[in-house]
Design a protein around this nucleic acid. Structure first.
Lengths: 217, 217
DNA sequence: GTCTATATGTTGATAGAC
DNA sequence: GTCTATCAACATATAGAC
């Protein structure tokens, strides 16, 4: 582990990220790398794999990024930014607590789909390197903030108090996060439908209410 | 990938599996390996890691098993056996469909906890080798059989028909499977409590029913 | 911006002594 | 059953030409 800094040589990371052969930049390499990392796992991916997938040689990759771990850090940062952004949106910081929980859940689902390979990577981090340990810390912080929201909703009597807020949060977001294992965009299930199904199950359950119960009308 | 068979040199795999230094057998090595594999990831684990964790040298490990992939296959087989066993139990094959679904969910939760490192490994398989592809096929078959149960329950009017059975199954078991990411035995949450929380959320939801609705009495 | 060639360490696995 | 010694393959990364 010789390198301890993971910045880019170039300034911009976001951009058109075209993958056409012969003209790669840091952003397009990040896109390709995140896809291969999620397919093979980070440790199961060699620089040779990345070279083959991006259509350039191993050594050319080092012209754009400091190394393999740098690509991982950039990808993880992108996922973390996307998720934390949700927590600061107006609908997540005001209104009835249960509605804020549902909003965060739905928006997190949308972000998970929008940044699928990056979030997938984040969820698979094991803590083997400093970069991975840092990412695990960020995940814990996100979890902590969502748990606080759920606790508010329980205290307000809007969610059941039969399940501890920390456990409820882990299970709700566990269901959401499991989506990375099978969801593929453009296969008949829109992000909104997905978010609706998850919110529907976790908040109201799959069981069909017995006749005579449930909201009237 | 020179080896194509992954059997043990010794006959027994299950057994006391003591980890005391100096007298390892295939079963005790499997136990240690599964733990390290889940901590570091399979690809992130070297034979040197396994040697250090088991207190013997790399070459000694090859006296007990054919190699690294053999240890993976043995661990995956154990997880697969534990999960499929549930599907053949009497309560999973007779009775109201929704109750069979709940039974399978609860028993799968118990098995997941009982065989935690093995099931964790199974859920992280990526498909990079023949062994991993075989495991993915077994997972698909399990999923297929559970989906059939859920479809029965929907058709019987016991579960809501607003969510497609395949999606409901993926999400329910996604929540369950996410437990491998944080659950540690003996930390205040029993397997039964865990199974109850998961069944409770997925079937009846977290939202507190409005006053006047819900089962009377 | 990409290449060939190469340095240097780590990997899974084997040979053979005790 | 465990060890030391060793191997060939592959890993990440660098040097320098075009």
């Amino acid at each position: 582990m010789p390198n301890r800094t993971f910045g880019l040589y170039c300034d911009q990371v976001s951009g058109p990220a075209s993958s056409r052969r012969g003209r790669h930049n840091a952003a397009s390499l990040l896109e390709v790398s995140a896809r291969v990392f999620t397919e093979r796992g980070y440790d199961g991916t060699s620089m040779e794999h990345l070279a083959a997938a991006s259509g350039i040689t191993k050594s050319s990759i080092y012209h754009h990024v400091r190394g393999k771990e740098s690509l991982l850090k950039l990808a993880l940062q992108r996922a973390i930014d996307a998720l934390f952004m949700v927590l600061d949106e107006p609908s997540a910081t005001s209104g009835p607590a249960a509605e804020r929980v549902e909003y965060v859940l739905r928006r997190a689902a949308e972000q998970l789909v929008a940044e699928l390979p990056y979030v997938t990577l984040l969820l698979r981090v094991r803590g083997n390197t400093d970069t991975e340990l840092w990412a695990l810390g960020q995940r814990r912080e996100f979890d902590r903030r969502v748990t606080a929201l759920v606790a508010d909703a329980v205290q307000a009597g809007e969610l059941r108090d039969t399940i501890e807020p920390g456990l409820a949060t882990r299970l709700m977001f566990g269901m959401l996060n499991s989506v990375t294992e099978w969801y593929r965009p453009g296969r008949g299930l829109t992000p909104e439908q997905l978010a609706g199904a998850i919110a529907g199950i976790t908040l109201d359950g799959l069981r069909r209410p017995a006749a005579g119960s449930g909201p009237v009308g």
